[in-house]
Simulated assay, not measured.
Amino acid sequence: MFFVRTASERDLEQIRALLVETWHATYDTFYGAEKVDELTARWHSVEALKARLRRENAEFVVADSGSEIAGMGFAAMSDALEKTVILHQLYVLPKYQRQGVGRDMFAELETCFPDAEHMRVEVEPQNLHALAFYRAHGFSEVASTAHCGGEQSGIPALVLEKRLS
C-alpha cells in the first residue's frame, strides 16, 4: 500500500531513478533510448528536482510504501495563465501502473491549489495510456505545442485542461 506525501531532498535519488525507468518504458518507442537519456539527464537530474522542491506556489508529491517510492507528481501555479495550475509531472513505475497510484497522487495535487480554477497538462500525442488517464479524470484538449516542457524541446504535445471546482 502506498500513501501520498510531500517529497523531500532525501527522496530525490529514488525519484530520479523512477523517472529514468518510467521515461524509458514510455518514450523509447517514440524517441529512441538516446533521446530519452538526453532528456532525462537534463529534465530529471537531482539538481532539476531540487529546484522543483524549492519552487514557490508548487507541490511535489510521492507515493511511498515506506520502503519504495512508486510514483511522483509535481504541479505549480502558472506564471502566465491566471488561476491555472500546471501539472508538470505525474509518473508511476511501470510495475505499479493501473493500481490507483497515479489516481491518488492526482487527487492530492488537485486539492493543493484552492485558488486555481483550471489545471493544465501537456501529453505526448502517442502516449495513449496517459491521454486515456487524463480524459478519464475530466481533461479535454485545448491546444497543442511543438515544444513540450518549453526549452525548444522539439517534443510535440497535446495541451489538456480541466476545470477545478
Rank of each mutant, 00 (worst) to 15 (best):
F2E: 09
V4P: 02
R5K: 04
R5I: 01
T6V: 12
A7R: 05
Q14E: 15
I15Y: 00
I15H: 05
R16I: 02
A17E: 12
T22C: 04
W23F: 01
F30H: 12
A33G: 07
E34Y: 06
R42L: 11
H44F: 05
E47Y: 02
A48M: 02
K50W: 02
K50H: 11
A51L: 12
R52S: 00
L53P: 08
V62M: 06
D64F: 07
S67Y: 15
E68K: 14
M77H: 05
E82A: 13
E82Q: 11
K83E: 14
I86S: 12
H88D: 13
H88M: 10
R98S: 12
Q99W: 10
M105F: 00
M105H: 06
F106N: 01
L109N: 06
T111Q: 15
F113E: 06
P114W: 04
D115C: 13
R120L: 15
V121H: 05
V121E: 07
P125T: 04
Q126M: 13
H129T: 13
A130V: 08
L131I: 13
F133I: 09
Y134F: 15
A136V: 03
V142S: 03
H147W: 09
C148P: 00
G149E: 02
E151R: 08
G154F: 00
G154T: 01
P156V: 03
V159E: 00
